[in-house]
Design a protein around this nucleic acid. Structure first.
Length: 214
DNA sequence: GCGACAG
DNA sequence: ATCTTGTCGC
């Protein structure tokens, strides 16, 4: 546990924060992990989605055992090994990773998305479904509205309304990408659902494989 | 000290 | 995360 925190403190120094816009990638890769009830058996999925059509271009799966418990603030130690294994099975080299969870909007400014981005040295960001750290005032009801997520006087992320009158998602930069790009990409990748297509498909695919496995 | 706490 | 069906509503 203290070993993990020490490693986290070391890795966090390698995060690259930027506000420079990136070129729109042709594909993005969504990641998620599904667990078996009452055990640590897990399925990680990496799904490549075509940005223009939002169609799934490739799916890679890794089945394994999560060897670290879930501890708020240390989620990366539970999921990163499984996610890296899934990403390594892809034939398509990832251009940008979209994670289920937080990036800079983390107590140590080093959530799962930042951790994975640093480990794989790829641009990354996170989209979380519930609040974790930071304060915000709810964004307007219209799709596309967003409000700053702030902590200690700094903007660490954004609360984004991906569908009108639907609970917003929590977006934060992970590594080598600016928050503005994370927000616009999240909206571009959210077609008709609350969750952007890459992580939504990763959730669907990992659940599907877990069902077949059991 | 107490409560909260991504997935 | 996961245990869990139908049901209301756009």
């Amino acid at each position: 546990m203290q070993d993990a925190e020490r490693l986290q403190d070391e890795l966090r120094q390698r995060v690259v924060r930027t506000s420079a816009p990136i070129a729109l990638p042709r594909t993005v890769t969504g990641l998620d992990v599904t667990y078996e009830t009452g055990s640590d058996r897990a399925v990680a999925a990496a799904v490549v989605v075509d940005v223009a059509s939002l169609a799934v271009a490739e799916v890679a799966i890794h089945r394994g055992l999560a060897d670290f418990p879930y501890v708020p603030g240390l989620l990366a130690f539970r999921e990163v090994p499984l996610l890296v294994a899934a990403v390594e099975k892809l034939a398509t080299p990832p251009a940008l990773l979209v994670c289920d969870g937080y990036g800079l909007a983390h107590p140590k400014r080093f959530g799962l998305a930042s951790h994975l981005g640093v480990v794989l040295d790829l641009p990354s960001y996170g989209v979380a479904k519930t609040a974790f750290v930071g304060a915000f005032t709810p964004p307007a009801e219209a799709r596309g509205s967003h409000a700053d997520l702030t902590d200690d006087g700094e903007v660490i992320g954004s609360v984004v309304r991906t569908q009108t009158a639907v609970k917003p998602v929590f977006v934060s930069a992970g590594h080598r990408i600016g928050l503005a790009d994370c927000i616009s990409l999240t909206l571009r990748l959210s077609g008709r659902y609350r969750i952007p297509e890459p992580t939504r498909q990763a959730d669907i695919e990992s659940r599907k494989i877990l069902r077949e496995w059991q």
